[in-house]
Deep mutational scan, measured.
Amino acid sequence: VTTYKLVINGKTLKGETTTKAVDAETSEKAFKQYANDNGVDGVWTYDDATKTFTVTEMV
C-alpha cells in the first residue's frame, strides 16, 4: 500500500489530499471521484516519482 497525493488547482477549490491505495490506477479512480464530487473538472497529470496527481481547471 502506497500513499498518493492529489493537488487541486481549481477555479473555486484549491488544496491537497492524500489516499492510500494498492496502485496508482486505484488512487486515480478515488481522486477523480473526489474531484467530481467537488465540482472540479480539469486536466490531469501524474508524477510517478512523487506519486502525485495534479488536476488543473482551465479558467
Rank of each mutant, 00 (worst) to 15 (best):
V1G: 10
V1I: 12
V1N: 09
T2M: 11
T3Y: 08
T3F: 07
T3G: 04
T3D: 07
Y4T: 03
Y4P: 02
Y4M: 00
K5P: 03
K5H: 12
K5S: 05
K5C: 08
K5E: 03
L6S: 02
L6V: 03
L6C: 06
L6M: 04
L6R: 00
V7W: 04
V7A: 03
V7S: 04
V7N: 04
V7L: 09
V7P: 01
V7M: 07
I8M: 07
I8G: 00
I8Q: 00
I8W: 09
I8S: 01
N9V: 14
N9W: 13
N9D: 09
G10T: 15
G10S: 12
G10N: 05
G10H: 08
G10W: 06
G10K: 04
K11W: 10
K11T: 12
T12K: 10
T12I: 11
T12Q: 10
T12P: 04
T12L: 11
T12H: 14
T12C: 15
L13S: 07
L13M: 12
L13F: 15
L13H: 11
L13D: 04
K14H: 10
K14D: 05
K14W: 10
K14N: 08
K14R: 12
K14M: 09
G15A: 13
G15L: 15
G15C: 15
G15T: 14
E16W: 14
E16V: 14
E16F: 14
T17K: 11
T17D: 03
T17Y: 15
T18P: 02
T18C: 14
T18G: 04
T18R: 06
T19H: 13
K20I: 14
K20Y: 12
K20P: 05
K20A: 11
K20F: 13
K20H: 10
K20R: 13
A21S: 09
A21R: 03
A21W: 04
V22C: 12
V22D: 06
V22L: 12
V22F: 12
V22M: 12
D23F: 04
D23M: 03
A24F: 14
A24N: 06
A24W: 14
A24K: 15
E25C: 13
E25Y: 12
E25A: 14
E25D: 09
E25N: 09
T26G: 06
T26L: 06
T26I: 08
T26D: 07
S27R: 01
S27A: 15
S27W: 04
E28S: 08
E28R: 12
E28M: 15
E28K: 12
K29N: 07
K29T: 07
K29L: 11
K29D: 04
K29R: 13
A30H: 14
A30K: 11
F31N: 01
K32C: 05
K32M: 08
K32E: 03
K32D: 01
Q33I: 10
Q33M: 10
Q33E: 09
Q33H: 06
Y34Q: 02
Y34H: 04
Y34E: 01
A35M: 09
A35H: 02
N36H: 15
N36A: 15
N36S: 14
N36R: 15
D37Y: 07
D37G: 05
D37C: 10
D37H: 08
D37L: 11
D37Q: 11
G39Q: 08
G39R: 06
G39I: 03
G39F: 06
G39V: 03
V40D: 01
V40R: 01
V40Q: 02
V40L: 09
V40N: 01
V40H: 04
V40E: 01
D41I: 14
D41R: 13
D41H: 14
D41K: 13
G42Y: 03
G42D: 01
V43W: 09
V43H: 09
V43A: 07
V43L: 10
V43P: 03
V43R: 07
V43Q: 08
V43K: 08
W44C: 02
W44P: 00
W44K: 01
W44T: 00
W44F: 03
T45E: 10
T45H: 10
Y46V: 00
D47R: 02
D48G: 07
D48I: 08
D48W: 07
D48A: 13
D48V: 09
A49H: 09
A49Y: 09
A49K: 11
T50K: 06
T50C: 04
T50N: 08
T50D: 04
K51H: 11
K51V: 03
T52H: 01
T52M: 04
F53G: 00
F53Q: 00
F53C: 03
T54I: 08
T54Y: 11
T54V: 06
T54N: 04
V55S: 00
V55M: 04
V55N: 02
V55K: 01
V55L: 11
T56A: 04
T56L: 05
T56C: 06
T56G: 03
T56E: 06
T56M: 07
E57H: 05
E57V: 10
E57T: 07
E57K: 03
M58H: 12
M58G: 10
V59C: 13
V59E: 14
V59D: 14
V59K: 10
